[in-house]
Amino acid sequence: MVLIYLIGGLFLGWSLGANDAANIFGTAVGTKMIRFRKAAIIASIFVVLGAVLEGSGASQTIDSLGTVDDWSKAFVISFSSAVTVTLMTKFSLPVSTSQAIIGAIIGWNIFAGQPTDMQLLSNILMTWVLCPLLAAFFALLIYFPVKKLVENSEVHLLRLDAYTRLSLIIAGALGAYSLGANNIANVVGVFFSSNPMQDLTVGPITISATRQLLFLGSIAISIGIITYSNRVMRTIGNDLFHLSPITALIVVISHSLVLYVFASEGLRDLLLAVNLPAIPLVPVSSSQAIIGAIIGLAIAKRSASIRLKVLVRIASGWVTTPIAAGVISWTIFTLVWFN
């Protein structure tokens, strides 16, 4: 029964794994720098680690946005998000799981007549804008030292290729860890208040109900990676901008840093300790982080004009995705469940 209610979130997790792993390993696998099997194993392991070790921060933010005290309601919210993502993908509209879940929660809040924390919501909206901007900034920051290193170091082309492969694996692992830490909130965040799990004690170790939930969600992401991301990885990469293995490395590192910044409780505490403003822990769009990093790279290379169409597409997703998810969530609650 628990699994049936969780299935909306798990489906969302599967879809996230199938699509977003391509952001991390797409170019490396597409250019055959790394075999898919190796990429899938690394991504799966590190997604689980990221989710279990550092996934609770962003998940709590999702939980705080709307009180969902029943699994069945949490199921409708995550199911609405999954339907939104599926429909918008089908119609080739820009969509983000992170933005869909927020919209679906607001749809629930409206249906239930409970207030939405506007301060928190504005923080979340701010991170959506900040996410691609910060990714562009990181890409700019990383590009120049990498360029200098590659072009000035007297390392043989073949040796450089081997180092690049190794770096792509490390960056991919970091990317998968950050994806798990940040985006697990989309999968299980709404189930936090109504978590059906019990703490599990095995010998001297107690595994909390929250960690079990994070683990279950991350397994769904891993299954998505293993079962379906191969196809996405082989088609991604050159849609927006041709990436060489080295520029792909810069993009993946920038993306990973952004997702980590918006997921790490440790980093937030560190900033607070030195009296700096805390970064909100919010699930952000992995795809938009990638696009932001690519734009940063294009600026650094001064080789490509930034297409206004791409920016408009990102911005339109910030509006259309949550509205669509909100409407679908509200409609399901109204018509099917509680009418």
């Binding site: 040796r159 290729d161 492969r165």
Partner: peptide, 13 residues
């Protein structure tokens, strides 16, 4: 991974 470094060295030579 060391295999790839060995292979690279071989082709470099």
């Amino acid at each position: 991974m060391p295999i790839i470094f060995k292979l690279s060295k071989n082709i470099e030579d």
